[in-house]
Design a protein around this nucleic acid. Structure first.
Lengths: 236, 236
DNA sequence: CGCCCGTTTGATTTCATTCAACGCGTGTGG
DNA sequence: CCACACGCGTTGAATGAAATCAAACGGGCG
């Protein structure tokens, strides 16, 4: 079974300082400017990247030119999920990005020797899995406001966990990227943001910086099922 | 870091015969009848289950009594994904189910001793991750027919991989379960099936057994973006 | 054999998509 | 330094598809 299959995207508690140092030896620094493609779906997966700075989107391009965004990746996340030696998704720098490029060959040998790293990978994958399930959960929602509210909470949680404890949420990506992630049109994303703003749930400092005024109301919106609060019977 | 976190749900090439045998020693046979809850979200996760027979659904129950189905699990899949010692989802037998109940304590000690098993877990998790991403992809689709078509393909792929090479796809779950998985109303699921049937893409032997007449047409439907085939510009 | 759960079908409403036009801001070239 | 253009975001109006409400049907199981 090829070790390429274990490369991954995103993850909490990514690497200890020693591990990062070890990997630095076999890796090289890379830099991508905003909008640059890092690799394409189906390309030969000969390297994994560890993001140091900036934001990356991982996506699939459909025959109709539309794209489905699988995940947004932030500093300390790994990108390069592969299957059968080929990248599963395409990735692009959403902002300017710096990171380490780690050849899979080198990574493989390291993994052989270091069972602790193997365990680390397992933890990362569990995290990823829960993230993907959260994404699916978000996508299963019907109301546009709900999806956007959940998306906001997701970003806020991430930024809070990173200790970027500004009372503000930063939106590094375009409205259309958010749209491709939450599965709706970018116009609807825009309208949802504005609706939240006019309801006094959030305020915009500029188009990329949101402040959450009413966390309680936001949670309300995020968990509303339809129009009213009435539960509905299930299963016929 | 607790070993419970590495327990998982679903997976290809689950266990070798020896591994299964080894685990059998520390596990007990269990049996659930259709509709039985196996465990509930937030319960203390003290065991993992290996499904031998039948179908299980893994889901989250929302405050409004609705449920979001995270995954359907089939024979050879493992259920019991946990975080912080608690089950992440609830699970219920969709059909009659038999399987092995494996105490996590025993599993932990086995994992300590057997690094090969650890690697196996990594592979399972990668598989899971791709599954979850596929689910999210399905959910991102807007047209009801597309979602149902993708769901059908998913079941067919699974059953083909299992060597259940009947020209028929078996639907073990209710329409409302499918609805909760693909993120739409059960009425819409029903209508979609009938629409596919009236278009001559599928035929029903009974409500649970579908035959795919036009695989090509099904793939068409599964990949259609909206009404026509026209690509649409992106990003502003 | 009849009841009940699950499914189908119908009518109406709701809400996001779509098409289209305008505004803003940023970066670029004159 | 200003003007303009272009990408991105916002807003508006009409269409359309699925959710919802409601009722009838069928099949399986007691």
């Amino acid at each position: 079974m090829p070790a390429e299959r274990i490369s991954t995207e995103t993850g909490t508690s990514p690497l200890t300082d020693e591990e990062r140092l070890d990997l630095a030896v076999i890796s090289s620094v890379v830099r991508f400017k905003k909008g640059t493609q890092i690799y394409r779906e189906r390309d030969r997966a000969d390297a994994v990247f560890n993001i140091n700075n900036g934001v990356v989107k991982s996506y699939k391009t459909l025959p109709d030119e539309t794209q489905h965004i699988v995940a947004f990746l932030f500093p300390d996340d790994l990108i390069g999920l592969a299957e059968e030696g080929k990248y599963v998704n395409s990735t692009e720098a959403v902002t300017a990005v710096t990171g380490y490029r780690i050849p899979v060959k080198a990574l493989e040998t390291r993994l052989q020797k270091d069972p602790g790293l193997e365990f680390h990978v397992i933890c990362k994958l569990c995290h990823e899995l829960r993230e993907a399930q959260r994404h699916a959960f978000l996508l299963s929602k019907h109301r546009a406001l709900t999806k956007v509210a959940l998306f906001l909470q997701m970003l806020e949680n991430y930024q809070a966990a990173k200790g970027e404890g500004t009372g503000e949420v930063y939106l590094p990506m375009r409205r259309s990227d958010i749209a491709d992630y939450v599965g709706m049109s970018f116009e609807a994303v825009s309208r949802s943001f504005r609706a939240l703003a006019s309801r006094g749930v959030i305020t915009f400092r500029d188009r990329r910086h949101v402040k959450i005024i009413g966390r309680a109301q936001l949670e309300m919106v995020a968990s509303e099922s339809k129009t009213s609060d009435l539960p509905r019977r299930r299963g016929a």
